[in-house]
Write a protein that binds this DNA or RNA. Sequence first.
DNA 1: TGTCCACCAGTTTTT
DNA 2: CTGGTGGACA
Length: 795
Amino acid sequence: MSDLWGLGDDGFEEVQRPTPLGAGGGSAHGAIPEALLAGLNPPQREAVEHRGPALLIVAGAGSGKTRVLTHRVAGLLATREAWPSQILAITFTNKAAAEMRERVEQLVGEESRGMWIRTFHSACVRILRREAEEFGFKDSFTIYDSGDVRALLKRLIKERGADITGLTPGGVAARISKAKNELHDVDSWARTASLDNPLDAAFLEIWREYDRELRRANAFDFDDLISQTVFLLRAFPRVAAQYRKRFRHILVDEYQDTNAAQYALIRELTQPVSRGELPDLRDDLPGASLTVVGDSDQSIYAFRGADIRNITDFERDFPGARVIMLEQNYRSTQNILSAANAVIGNNFDRRAKNLWTDSGDGAKIVGFTGYSGHDEAQFVADEIVELTGGGMAYSDIAVFYRTNAQTRALEEVLIRTAIPYRVIGGTKFYERAEIKDAMAYLVTVANPADALSLRRIMNVPKRGIGPATEAALQAFADEHDITLRDAMRRVDEIALGPKVAGAIKDLAALLDEFSARPDADPGEVLRELMSRSGYTDQLRRSPDPQDAARLENVEELIAVTREFRRQNPGGTLIDFLTETSLVAAADELDDSGGQVSLMTLHTAKGLEFEAVFITGVEEDLLPHRMSANEPGGPAEERRLFYVGITRARQRLHLSLAMTRAQFGEVNPAVPSRYLEEIPADLIDWRTPPTTMRASAQPRALGRWRDEPREQFVTGYRTPPPLPKGPKKEFANTITEVRDNSGLELAAGDRIRHKDFGEGTVQAVTGLDKKRVAEVRFDTAGRKRLLVKIAPIEKL
DNA sequence: TGTCCACCAGTTTTT
DNA sequence: CTGGTGGACA
């Protein structure tokens, strides 16, 4: 997908070509080739063939919506109803966009070039860059991620002493984000707020200052990308008319996740264009035809402003809309679907929908209750060994959890068991300090107005430019109404020591040198910046072994920029920065690499796996404690569980623990209310949740204590005895210095394991650091152990 | 200015 | 248990 970012060749000029047909044409075009319709079921086929102003495809999980969407686009192209450049397809992730483009290309080949298949954010960036000059921005603007936003807010809050009022960067960021997603700006919000409230007044002031800083830095935050595009289209009718005329067919994926700003964007783009709005337009043009695909049962982003009413009210919003339901599922077994249907059926207030499949019941859902999170993780690892032993690939297996904190126990056990895995999302590469430093250098070069990035690198590596010096520079900048960067160039006019002044001048000269070459190869720019700034040297000289790893990361980033340039010949620094700002967790997932995928339930949406583990199915985790107070919280959490269940094709595992460790404290855990909602006969409990923990019963869950459901009684078996020996030290077992690489092991050897007790080695495979022992323990069963780090001794 | 240490608070999901 | 912050000292 080399043109994912649409560098060049976006076919905008094709607007000038004759328009094949307006939207809602209907019959004048040729028939859709049978090849594009073959193999579709009746509603799918109708969804591909229907023509009209608006179409809502209610696509249940696994009902083939991507197929429908891509065939629909291919149909528009194949019949010449639309030029590629007249199609705008919007997704939420780059991965979804890439997949769609690829599949359309497979269907119609080169024909598909020039389509806009992009995420909301990248489409908006595209429009904003193109029109930047029009409304007073420079097209070199950069994008602040949530870390940048927090850093900036932190400074602003502190500067005004607003921290004592209780305003936190996180809280303010969330409020601003929410407001922007509802298309408020500072002034419109101020009108609705009661400014008698000192907290609101302080918030408003911070927000105003924050926006001003962004403007000065020539930067947008994430929410601005959408809302500013909407404002742009509203404020400049001629610009709006251009895009309305250009995009004749607009398709939106995951429509249930759109927020108010995104909805407004769609509305703007689907307005008709009247004669006279554009000089070369001879006739009135109807609004673009709109196709949206979504499933309100999979709406899990309300916390981010997604408004489920956008999809439930679609028919009212777009008169003449057609609604098509896709309910046949091609992904999962009937057992999995029955569980999913039963769970989601507890959400009232939804359009009834019933997923079904004709592919058979499949295996039962496997349930497990562990003593602790580690015990649960061990179950996951054991099952994975079992599954892969039966021929399943690691990459066909995924483990889901509600919160990122849950990965620790899982990772620890997976490492110990030598199961290759990958954490999707989580602590990301781009969040590491050294990567942020390196990126800040690039941002500073690309966007000299950005003071935030400049501040970050000003004294990294150490140049003797401390807070006092920085403040002096800033004061000079404010006084002369210039940027911080300009102030650095005029350092001679500021009374500073000669050493400091020299350091500042050197840095400014280095940055300016590259700023002057915006089209240079980003990889080269980064390599030179890192070496000439002394950044790499500083890491290389450091005695701290961690710095060696940091150096590697910086080199990895250089490799990434090189790869970017290779994929996008001529791609500029700004292009690279835009790409990296807009990557989402799910984008990291490339199907290559035989690894188990670990991710949050949110990240899992839109993906599918042969075998799925949903862990931590407990109260306070799923549903999460924080959701309890929010309106619609429990229902949204239920949808989240539903999304998780429906990711599984063949095998589904639900697990929980009786105790959960958080902050080093161990707390009792209670089975999730959602477990009760799954019919008992669908689950095969290896170890059922017990009702023995009277102390752990929360008030709201009387049922678990008072009238335990049959499923837990019939499935009941005595849990295995706790491993003996000294109390468990799970935490940090991995980082503990242990190196068994010298240990000779062979089949038949007897060993003792810290947790599992004594056992017999069955086989040893792998080499050196990757040596894996398969051991049959006397009480704990069969386990795989990574010899190098296993807490074992030979007997 | 830089470094070290002790204390503190905050912990959901993320385009 | 983590990361961030602020103070004390070199």
